[in-house]
Design a binder for these strands. Structure first.
Length: 461
RNA sequence: UCCCCGGUAGCUCAGCUGGUAGAGCGGGUGGCUGUUAACCACUAGGUCGGCGGUUCGAGUCCGUCCCGGGGAGCCA
């Protein structure tokens, strides 16, 4: 048997090939008078290859029982197709059924709702839409590495399991080997001294604090890995386990941070347009008609940069009626972010210099004493896609902020240490990969851009 | 967690003011055909999400629970 070719290679052939082999899953089969048409897909690209199974094949009776979803192996020659609609097709000389799919196979040759497909997440990668999505997901993962590697960033790995209360960014999942039906206690509290690590352990909500330590040694670094939030959030934009990209750069101030964040987002949009065109076209056609305009807009326009105080002014003078009041000192609500990026500017907006009371302790305090060097990149439809800041590098100021926020200085001893020994200005940001995929594909529910989503009360598959 | 909407055939849905259920696709059978979401004919398939209530009678009205979706908060 000849070496198996990928369908994408066959479709891109320059000339006929006498002997080829292909394997994949049947999308549909149609009978003609003396032969059968089989649409074969192996995941290597969106397009199927058409296989002609002539009735003279010795197992033609078996071939006629091939159903949608079956796995088959095909040998034959690659020929120019006499039919319209495809350039190449396989004239089969032998077809074997590797795995039959009975007619209870849930995927049909028709559009299914995303809600239904979510209930069969183990099979939905076999649809055109989800196949395309997961290929784009892979390509953009690669593009993320390429962007940073091209710029001399080092890829680092920060812990998944982390000590308690050291990050303060939402609810965390506990990690324990304690017998939950017989928890050791001391003064009516759980005694973590008996737990695996001898102290309370959690799943990470961010690798940032660790990444800062590496940035203050390697210069420019980034993480790209799983992140966990135990928030009881039930929305189309939240999942409990997601992937986040977190670059961290020494000697970068806030403007440098905004520069690299903008360059990064535009690089990825450009990459998607150029390298994922076939799969992207599916989303532009069936999911969001305005998708290509949105992507071109991101790729080719400079982002608006807007201090928080000016953003508040725009919102106050907008004349728009918002459900939530706009006032200096309050965080921007989803509706406010969307107004800025979708209505007022109609392009991505970076809002920066937020009031210190609504932002994290590690953000650098500005000279006005009221704001910190936070910056959020807001994009149409998805809202906040990047959140970042210049970090507080001054030991005394950072220590005061930790105390002010009621955090424990001891928990942060190593973080503070980095400000005692050769401290330097540095900055970073985080980008939620799934939210970014929503932006790129137009998919509106975050559960549909990750293979097996984890959300409250859902741990199937 | 809060607010709103929904749950009818394998899938997508229709079913007006209460009178015991329909279509398209999919499946099966037959026909036709270098077809391509193929086409034509026939056919099978549903205790209308669960429980309780109102009524002579409930898919339809009421209560409650479960599940799904949208929005909000939290955030990425």
């Amino acid at each position: 048997m000849p070496k198996r070719s990928k369908v994408v290679e066959l479709l891109n052939a320059q000339s006929p090939i006498d002997i080829i082999a292909a394997k994949g899953w049947v999308r549909t089969r149609r009978d003609s008078k003396d032969f059968s048409f089989i649409e074969l897909n192996d995941g290597s690209c969106l397009t199927n290859i058409q296989v002609i199974a002539d009735s003279i094949l010795t197992n033609y009776d078996a071939i006629k029982t091939i159903t949608t979803g079956s796995a088959i192996s095909v040998e034959g020659k690659l020929v120019r197709s006499p039919g319209s609609g495809q350039q190449w097709e396989i004239q089969a000389t032998n077809i074997d059924v590797i795995g039959h799919a009975p007619d209870s196979y849930p995927l049909q040759k028709k559009r299914h709702s995303d809600e239904f497909l979510r209930t069969i997440a183990h099979l939905r990668p076999r649809t055109n839409k989800y196949g395309a999505l997961f290929r784009i997901r892979s390509q953009l993962s690669y593009a993320i590495h390429r962007f940073f590697q091209e710029r001399g960033f080092w890829y680092i790995h920060t812990p998944i399991v982390t000590g308690a209360d050291c990050e303060g960014a939402g609810e965390m999942f506990s990690v324990t080997t304690l017998d939950l039906s017989n928890v050791p206690k001391k003064d009516s509290h759980v005694d973590y001294a008996h737990d695996f690590f001898g102290k309370e352990a959690k799943l990470t909500v961010s690798g940032q604090l660790s990444a800062e330590m590496l940035a203050l040694a390697l210069g420019e670094v980034y993480t790209f890995g799983p992140t966990f939030r135990a928030e009881n959030s039930n929305t189309s934009r939240h999942i409990s386990e997601f992937w986040m990209v977190e670059p961290e750069m020494a000697f970068y101030e806030l403007n440098d941070d905004m520069d690299i964040a903008e360059e990064f987002v535009r690089y990825l949009a450009t990459y998607a347009i150029e390298e994922c065109s076939e799969d992207l076209a599916l989303f532009a056609r069936f999911v969001d008609k305005t998708l290509m305009n949105t992507l071109e807009n991101i790729a080719s326009n400079e982002f608006i940069r807007l201090p928080y105080t000016e953003a508040i002014g725009i919102l106050e003078n907008s004349g728009g009626s918002f459900e939530f009041d706009v006032a200096w000192g309050k965080d921007l609500q989803s509706e406010h972010e969307r107004y800025l990026t979708e209505c007022h500017f109609r392009r991505p907006v970076i809002v920066y210099d937020y009031p210190k009371d609504i932002k994290a302790f590690y953000m650098r305090l500005n000279d006005d004493g009221k704001t910190v060097t936070a910056m959020d990149v807001l994009v149409p439809r998805v809202g906040e896609i990047v959140g970042g800041s210049q970090r507080e590098e001054r030991y005394d100021v950072l220590k005061a902020r930790i105390e002010e926020m009621g955090l424990s200085e001891q928990d942060y001893w190593w973080y503070l240490d980095s400000r005692r020994f050769g401290s330097a200005p540095h900055s970073g940001f985080g980008l939620g990969f799934e939210r970014f995929l929503m932006l790129i594909t137009g998919i509106t529910n975050i559960r549909d851009v990750i293979p097996f989503p984890r959300t409250p009360k859902h741990l199937e598959f």
